[in-house]
């Protein structure tokens, strides 16, 4: 689904990430970990095309990102659901409309029943008409997950999706992601929460990627 070949990112004279080679196969479940500031968010931004590698190749769905037009990039993002660290809602629209937004901009039908079902699945049925600033941290992150999957994307990238959640809520969100993985979605979660990774590994064949010394490494079974 996403393939990196010797890809690097950084500014002149200072590389943030270098020599990354990786393939995310369909239906896989990956964690991305590393200390704060190691470049987890940067790596995810490279995956959804907000940043472009300065060298090497990065392709998504078999298409080289460097050769993608702006419209091509937009089409690619419709196939990738992203749970952003700070959720990125439109604050002047209620939650239900924020969830429907990816469908609207893609020109796809918004089916109210499906939207209600999705809200119920993330436990936000009663908050459909709430404005994003009124939501708690946990509600926002579950809302962000719901928006990420509303278009039924093939890949879900989540950046610290449990950052603002207590343990119970984190587990709940994790189980939602595991459920999605069982439905065949490719999942990549950036987190520094090792407990979360351990919990997940008990339920799903998850692999762990670690960013260390600007290099992307596949962690062994040591976790």
């Amino acid at each position: 689904m996403i393939e990196l070949r010797d890809a690097s990112y950084g500014y002149a004279g200072r590389m943030l990430l270098s020599g990354m080679t990786l393939t995310l196969p369909p239906g896989s479940f990956h964690f991305l970990t590393g200390p704060s500031g190691a470049g987890k968010t940067t790596f995810l931004k490279l995956c959804y095309g907000e940043l472009r590698p300065v060298s090497g190749h990065l392709s998504a769905f078999g298409e080289d990102l460097a050769r993608l037009s702006r419209d091509g990039l937009a089409r690619m993002r419709r196939r990738i659901g992203i749970v952003h660290q700070d959720c990125e809602f439109l604050d002047h629209l209620p939650l239900s409309e924020n969830l429907a937004l990816p469908l609207v901009v893609a020109g796809r039908p918004v089916v109210d029943d499906e939207l209600r079902e999705l809200l119920a699945w993330v436990g936000l049925r009663s908050r459909a008409d709430a404005m994003p600033p009124e939501l708690s941290g946990g509600e926002r992150q579950r809302g962000a997950l719901a928006r990420a999957i509303v278009t039924s994307p093939e890949i879900i990238l989540a950046d610290e999706p449990t950052g603002n959640l207590d343990w119970e809520m984190s587990q709940r969100l994790l189980s939602l992601l595991i459920e999605l993985n069982r439905m065949g979605k490719t999942i990549l979660i950036a987190t520094h929460d090792l407990n979360l990774i351990r919990t997940a590994k008990a339920q799903v064949a998850a692999r762990v990627l670690r960013i260390k010394d600007r290099q992307l490494q596949l962690a062994g079974a040591d976790l």
Binding site: Y48, E50, R70, D71, A74, R75, M76, R77, R78, I82, H84, E88, F89, L90, L101, P102, V105, A106, R147, T151
Partner: peptide
């Protein structure tokens, strides 16, 4: 910020 969010969820420039 609105434009940024719209880009991230896959909106084309013309939209």
């Amino acid at each position: 910020q609105v434009i940024r969010v719209l880009h991230l969820i896959g909106a084309r420039d013309v939209t």
